[in-house]
Design a binder for these strands. Structure first.
Length: 913
RNA sequence: GGGCGAUUAGCUCAGUGGUAGAGCGCUUCCUUCACACGGAAGAGGUCGCUGGUUCAAUCCCAGCAUCGCCUACCA
């Protein structure tokens, strides 16, 4: 056993890479669909290829890896499918920035060349995150890594698009959408982040066309959009404006006439009760404009400037903010700007570049999510309501319903180049084809059609837009498994895809953070149900966000980002993983402080040193082989029992996704039971025990530690695999060794009771007194133990060596009903009275201590005694509760009596001196 | 505006209808042959505030306060 001497300090960097490479090379995480073992599948939330591992990834993938390793070791056929997301806007932005440094933009490069460039970037830089995931220890089936723009996944995207179009669930329409003027693309509703900002509320006078001295004052936060006003609305029952409804106003600056309309959506209490209506630049006004058949006046260009129209005049070409000050200035000169107030309101920002989002009129593709006959959202709601999918923690369900019930059609087209180009074609240059059919209608097809089926023209142009990135990720749980299998290029691949889908869909669990619940999870549910006729996953475990120690969201601009890679090299991957697992309490954000990680680094080191001790303590292999099984000491039976209780609890906690509980159980057991007590106790056994007992202890020690490594492995895969390799064990690799299962036969309540009540309690009590009275550990104590019955005496006698060694006691006397020696302090444990010899200075100290202790005890007893004098408590409380409390009262009374007794004795001794 | 969550030891957080727990930090002692990334002992909390239900509330209910988050078309 001593062939290798391990270093005193565990050095993670010396073992981690070795095992990561080994696991992958040995294909230990490869899942085969034909296996007969129960399937367990997860798909990774695909990180962006632009990404580098941040703590959110680290948490997300640590939790998934714990589940994957746990289920795999427990005997399941685990598929954890990895991959990355092409991240349309984000990736395009990265490459565009790179181009900008070279002084070119994508338009000079052209679409084809630009896309080539992005692919090239992906080849060189897109693999970073995958390498980092491997370093984290993620036990994915790396042979099945996917990318959202893979050929197979792109095929799935086209198939889904075409089918939805054919079913009428995808359509093209002109309407107001969220537009990022910087990215120059449409965004979906949830890609807009709302941010409170301090702005102004401008009060502007609009003169009546017929009576220019009569004016209506409107209040707006965006004066520049007045150039696009096509009405002013008031509430139909508003006394102030009633007579004016239907009259015309002269819109200042634009110099056109607009009507005053009545609409109940107007809030009479806000501003002046009159609101300008700009249907082309405000979502409210769009709805109002449609209700009243108002014209839509677009006054903006796609890059967020004032367009050139008859209305915009001198303002055209100005940016929004330039236009705002120019318009207010012009109004002021005309005497039409009545007042300006401070006003805070929410401004929509692009989630990628934080530019203010503009409501913008344009033609886009939409997914109809609540079609009355075929409601994607409706089925998705039902799946959760009927518990086909569990959201964990459950509290997220309300959020989910709230969002899904108010969901609007999903704008899926984006005016960028990097992504899945929309499979729709148009006849070039023809509004109406030869056949007389309107050829503005797109031809939606799986592949480029040879000619227009309506007019026969071969001059077709594909829709330049690409699909929202989340469109392809919505298909992730089945597209990655090979759907649609019938479109696979070869019979073998077809068969493989069919098998994969059959075995692993629906997947078992999805682990994700709540910020993409709607971006991704809800859409996967909609698409999965629609195309697979089955939910995409059973459990959705929603974890928190990782924040810094102050609770701030980590961001590069704040400079409070903790880089998990730095943490891994400083403290080890296992320490980081264990920290994240231990902090993953449901429904609470994680505030990560470095000290915590340090603590778990220490834990890893503790384990390492326990292993060193065990290796040194065990006899040579040759000796171990001979001499039979051996007998177990009380410590052996105790640790076995404790171990199997822990095994049961850990399995249970993992089954409930309580990673925090499971890691706390492991930490507590390994450090405070296995190391603090068991290893200390068996020092006695291994030194003084019989040969048979030494063999038994050596065997128990080995088995317990080996089991413990298996139990801990999902949390700390590297150090456990490394240590396991040094120990005798069944099987080849820890990563695929069986996960411990609780064995009721190993539970031993009697031994647990003895170790707890006889050994640990006595040792702790003696140590406590030693500490209180400053008796140095080097000074050996003399003491007597008094028990009530012979049985107790026997128990103590049998365990005397443990107590003597752990409490550092030299001479010890045991008896039934022993009287206290002349100068001795008493400590009570549940099983005995322990007397410790004192001298005079210590006697004084002890008197002092007893006085304080008594005062405290009396205070503690007060509420308990009070209860027993309450007749209502005695009559109404359950019997067990009364009994339990009575027992406590008895103990406290006895303790008090004993302390009083001692106190008087000691005082007497001092006085008589 | 609506919804959700939080408020427990100096800090970060578990937890339970029956005299409060962990880790870190702190204090004291100890370099005893696994580990100073260690060992032993200890201090420290009217469990946000106010009411209610109950024999009993940190836990259940109501209100309030503070702080987060989500969501929303008061321009």
């Amino acid at each position: 056993m001593t062939e290798e001497i391990l270093n005193k300090v565990y050095e993670p960097d010396k073992v981690e890479e070795k095992w990561a490479v080994f696991w992958e090379k040995e294909r230990l995480f490869h899942a085969a669909p034909e296996s007969t073992r129960p399937p367990y599948a997860m798909v990774i939330p695909p990180p962006n290829i632009t990404g580098s591992l941040h703590l959110g990834h680290a948490l997300n993938n640590t939790l998934q890896d714990i589940l994957a390793r746990w289920r795999r070791m427990s005997g399941d056929n685990v598929l954890w499918l990895p991959g990355t997301d092409h991240a349309g806007i984000a990736t395009q932005n990265v490459v565009e920035r790179q181009l900008a440094k070279e002084g070119i933009d994508r338009h000079t490069l052209g679409r084809e060349a630009f896309i080539q460039r992005v692919w090239k970037w992906k080849e060189t830089s897109g693999g970073t995150i995958v390498k980092q995931l491997k370093r984290l220890g993620a036990s994915c089936d790396w042979e099945r890594e996917r990318f959202t723009m893979d050929e197979g996944l792109s095929r799935a995207v086209r198939e889904v698009f075409v089918r939805l179009y054919e079913e009428g669930l995808i359509y093209r329409a002109e309407r107001l959408i969220n537009w990022c003027p910087r990215c120059r693309t449409a965004l979906s509703d949830i890609e807009v982040e709302h941010e409170e900002s301090r702005g102004k509320l401008y009060y502007i006078d609009y003169p009546l066309a017929e009576e220019p001295d009569q004016r209506i004052t409107v209040a707006t936060t965006r004066p520049e959009t007045m150039l696009g006003d096509t009405a002013v609305a008031v509430h139909p029952e508003d006394e102030r404006h009633r007579g004016r409804i239907g009259k015309k106003l002269r819109l200042p600056l634009a110099d056109v006439e607009i009507p005053i309309i009545a609409d109940p959506a107007v809030d009479r209490a806000f501003g002046t009760g009159a609101v300008k209506v700009t249907p082309a630049h405000d979502f409210n006004d769009e709805a109002m404009g449609k209700r009243h058949g108002l014209p839509f006046e677009n006054i903006m260009t796609p890059d967020g400037k004032i367009a050139e129209t008859p209305r915009t005049r001198t303002f055209s070409g100005k940016t929004i903010s330039e236009a705002r000050s120019a318009v207010t200035q012009a109004l002021e000169q005309l005497g039409l700007l009545r007042k300006v107030e401070d006003h805070t309101h929410a401004v929509g920002k692009c989630y990628r570049c934080k530019t203010a989002v503009e409501p913008f009129l344009s033609t886009q593709w939409f997914v109809r999510v609540n079609d009355p006959k075929n409601s994607l959202a409706g089925s998705a709601i039902e799946a959760v309501r009927k518990k086909k999918i569990r959201l964990l923690p459950e509290s997220w369900e309300n959020n989910y319903y709230g969002w899904m019930e108010n969901i609007q059609d999903w704008c899926v087209s984006r005016q960028i180049w990097w992504g899945h180009q929309i499979p729709a074609w148009y006849c070039v240059g023809r509004d109406v084809g030869q056949c007389g059919i309107d050829c503005k209608e797109p031809i939606v097809a799986r592949a480029r059609p040879e000619k227009c089926p309506r007019c026969g023209s071969a001059d077709l142009r594909q829709d330049p837009d690409v699909l929202d990135t989340w469109f392809s990720s919505a298909l992730w749980p089945f597209s990655t498994l090979g759907w649609p299998s019938e479109l696979q290029p070869t019979p073998e691949k077809r068969k493989e895809a069919e098998a994969m889908l059959k075995t692993f869909y629906p997947t078992s669990a999805l682990v994700t953070s709540f910020d993409i619940l709607f971006f991704w999870v809800a859409r996967m549910i909609m698409m999965g149900l629609h195309f697979m006729k089955e939910v995409p996953f059973r459990d959705v475990y929603i974890h928190a966000l990782v924040r810094d120690a102050e609770g701030q969201k980590m961001s590069k601009s704040k400079g409070n980002v903790i880089d998990p890679l730095e943490i891994m090299s400083k403290y080890g991957t296992d320490a980081l993983r264990f920290t994240l697992a231990s902090m993953a309490s449901p429904g609470r954000d994680i505030k990560l402080a470095e000290e915590r990680i340090e603590g778990y680094r220490n834990f890893a080191n503790k384990l390492w040193n326990a292993a060193r001790f065990i290796m040194m303590s065990l006899p040579e292999e040759s000796e171990r082989a001979t001499g039979g099984a051996g007998t177990l000491s009380i410590a052996d039976r105790w640790i076995q029992s404790r171990l199997h209780r822990t095994i049961g609890s850990v399995n249970q906690s993992l089954g409930n996704y309580r990673f925090d509980e499971a890691s706390a159980l492991l930490y507590q057991f390994i450090w405070h039971e296995f190391c603090d007590w068991y290893l200390e106790l068996i020092k006695v056994d291994l030194q003084d025990g019989s040969e048979a007992q030494k063999r038994g202890t050596a065997a128990t020690l080995t088995t317990a530690f080996e089991t413990l490594l298996r139990l801990l492995h999902p949390f700390m895969p590297f150090i456990t695999e490394e240590l396991w390799a040094h120990f005798p064990h069944p099987g080849e690799n820890l990563a695929v060794a069986p996960y411990p299962q609780a064995d009721a036969g190993k539970l031993d309540a009697a031994s647990e009771g003895i170790v707890r009540e006889i050994i640990i309690d006595a040792v702790a009590a003696i140590r406590n007194l030693r500490g209180e009275m400053n008796i140095p550990p080097s000074e050996e104590l003399g003491l007597s133990i008094s028990v009530d019955r012979d049985q107790g005496r026997e128990l103590f006698e049998r365990n005397l060596p443990y107590i003597k060694r752990l409490a550092r006691v030299s001479h010890l006397e045991i008896g039934v009903g022993l009287a206290a020696p002349k100068m001795a302090a008493t400590v009570l444990t549940g099983a005995a009275k322990i007397y410790i010899q004192l001298d005079e200075t210590r006697l004084n100290k002890e008197i002092d201590r007893l006085e304080k202790g008594l005062a405290k005890l009396e205070k503690e007893m007060e509420p308990v005694e009070k209860k027993f004098s309450d007749p209502l408590f005695l009559s109404k409380a359950p019997k067990e509760v009364v009994a339990k409390l009575d027992l406590q009262r008895g103990e406290m009374r006895e303790k008090k009596y004993k302390m009083n007794n001692d106190l008087q004795r000691f005082r007497g001794m001092i006085d008589s001196k």
